[in-house]
Amino acid sequence: MGNNNENLNKNMPARFRSPSIVTWLCWVIFIAFIAMGLNNANISFERLGRGILNIGSFLGDAFPPDFSRIGPITLSIIETLEMALVGTTIGVILSLPLALLAATNTSPHPAIGTVVRGIILTLRTIPDLVFALIFVISIGLGPLAGILTIAVDTIGFCGRFFSERIEEIDKGPVQALESTGASRLGVISGSIIPMGFPSFVGTSLFAAEKSIRGAAVLGLVGAGGIGVELNTAMSLRNFDQALMIIIFILIVVLIFEKISSAIRKKVI
């Protein structure tokens, strides 16, 4: 009996386990960053106090919102929406073939897969404002730069999620079509795309929501849309106009999110 107990105790898991050196190292780096970050932000009660006062005076100037320029602002909201939708649509259309090339189970060659995944990764990692700056420099101010920015941003987002979905697709139906003697394209259009379709639609709608939010600020660097108006109003200290623009953006984004979640529910 005693012998048995000893054996059992030997297998008993320890109360605490010392984390690995890597874990320790990660914690040390993390805490160091937080400490340095707080230090560099120069936080003082005096600054915070002043900040609160400034926000108060901003709000004081902003209320009541100024609706006098509702005409031109509505037009530029519409331009923003158009930029977002056109850019997202182009992005989604380009994402599908790229995702098929990137996904390990549909890629024609592992090397092609790696290259395409690299391209998608690059497009995703570079922030959209950076792309906007590049496009504004290369093709000039205006909505075209915004559309291209959003298209590129959408490829980074949809390319990744489409290809992950494709990799998760049930192998059975795919193999069933392969065993009928179908070509690669036949299998892709007969089972992979239809099975992935609901998820593709959901992802595209998320991308569109993201694009509308993104399109609202692209104007800050001159890439068209409502951001141009917001930037002007802020620089001229017309805070009442700025607030009106912010309210407009809020309404448009909320309406679009409602529509998109309704569509998503229907498809999935």
């Binding site: 059975g172 139906p173 193999q175 069933a176 079509l177 009928t180 003697g181 179908a182 070509s183 036949g186 299998v187 007969g190 089972s191 239809p194 099975m195 379709f197 609901p198």
Partner: peptide, 18 residues
């Protein structure tokens, strides 16, 4: 191993893919 979110008819038609 059907393509479950398509119609029965479409699934049968896919038999002719080859």
């Amino acid at each position: 191993n059907l393509t479950y979110n398509l119609s029965v008819f479409q699934n049968v038609l896919f038999g002719a893919l080859g």
